[in-house]
């Protein structure tokens, strides 16, 4: 009994101190704000902004992270035929993936919004695969695409082909893998903008004589342009920097720029050179974001609260 009483006393004592603190802070707005915003600010500056700045500085060093300053890393990258080819191929793959995902994702979002009543369930079915491990989703495709794998066995069973095709380790496998992982990501903004759109607009266009195709291209697509741009950005950027998918599914001729960075950090150990390539990728990202901002994409949390 006595013990319980003393625990209670202690907890009321603590309550009183908390109360005193709350009262103290109520009258000191600036202190209160810095106590709330300060910790996350500190963490994000220290462990996100500063690391990126560190990478920028190191990208100008020669050979090691304490080497002398130089422009060689950038010059060597841009002067090399191999790296320019890799950069060009990365851009090409990224554009292809973005195009495929945008068309398929938009078709799916449109079908869900216009032609289905079970939207919550369908949306769940879209996002659940997205929340599972990236590596595992790639591994699922290794199961399917490898020589003698699920796809080959199925095709042989159906007598479409005689022997194994083995699509793994090819450019097609890379495209399939990317489409698979980014499709859910693009469907979400497409879905959001389509479901926010006033369906009466389409009816109005049809009343004025437009068929469904014309109504789509003159009304629906322009009205949902923001969502489309957001989806494109969300797919373009991570594809451009990816190394996992081409490493696991691609062959020797599907090397992408992210793999070159991985290589610098995992086997070549030329960190400054890797940092310089990281900066080049960042430059592309910034360019895409600026382009997207002009196109009206919305990426930033909270700015447009619900």
């Amino acid at each position: 009994m006595a013990e319980a009483a003393s625990t209670e006393e202690r907890s009321t004592g603590r309550n009183r101190r908390v109360r005193a603190l709350v009262t103290y802070l109520r009258d000191r707005r600036r202190l209160r704000t810095s106590l709330v915003a300060g910790p996350p600010y500190a963490v994000l500056v220290l462990f996100f902004a500063l690391p990126v700045l560190t990478m920028l500085v190191i990208s100008f060093r020669l050979g090691s992270i304490t080497g002398p300053f130089t422009l060689d890393n950038y010059a060597n990258f841009l002067a090399s035929d191999t790296y320019r080819t890799v950069l060009w191929r990365t851009l090409l793959v990224t554009v292809e993936v973005t195009a495929i995902v945008t068309v398929v994702g938009y078709a799916l979002a449109y079908s869900i919004v216009r032609f289905s009543r079970r939207t919550t369930l369908l949306l769940l079915l879209v996002i659940l695969p997205f929340w599972t491990s990236y590596i595992i989703r790639m591994y699922a495709w290794i199961n399917i695409l490898q020589s003698g794998g699920v796809l080959d066995s199925t095709l042989v069973l159906l007598r479409v082909v005689d022997g194994p095709v083995g699509l793994l380790y090819s450019q097609e496998a890379v495209l399939i893998g990317f489409t698979y992982v980014w499709l859910p990501l693009a469907v979400l903004p497409f879905y959001a903008s389509l479901s926010n759109m006033d369906p009466d607009l389409i009816e109005a266009a049809k009343d004025l004589g437009a068929g469904p195709i014309k109504a789509f291209f003159t009304v629906t697509l322009p009205t949902t342009a923001n969502g489309v741009v957001t989806g494109i950005i969300l797919v373009f950027i991570p594809t451009f920097g990816s190394f996992i998918t081409p490493r696991l599914l691609g062959g020797t001729n599907s090397i992408m720029i992210g793999m070159v960075i991985e290589n610098q950090f995992k086997s070549a150990f030329n960190y400054p050179f890797g940092a310089a390539i990281g900066m080049i990728i960042s430059a592309v990202v910034v360019a895409v974001l600026l382009f997207g901002a002009r196109g009206g994409g919305t990426l930033f949390a909270g700015g447009d609260g619900p």
């Binding site: 990126v52 990478m55 940092a275 990281g278 960042s282 990202v285």
Partner: peptide
């Protein structure tokens, strides 16, 4: 938004 490989390397 930033590609993971970039932030990973920066860290």
């Amino acid at each position: 938004v930033v590609p993971l490989v970039v932030t990973g390397v920066a860290l």
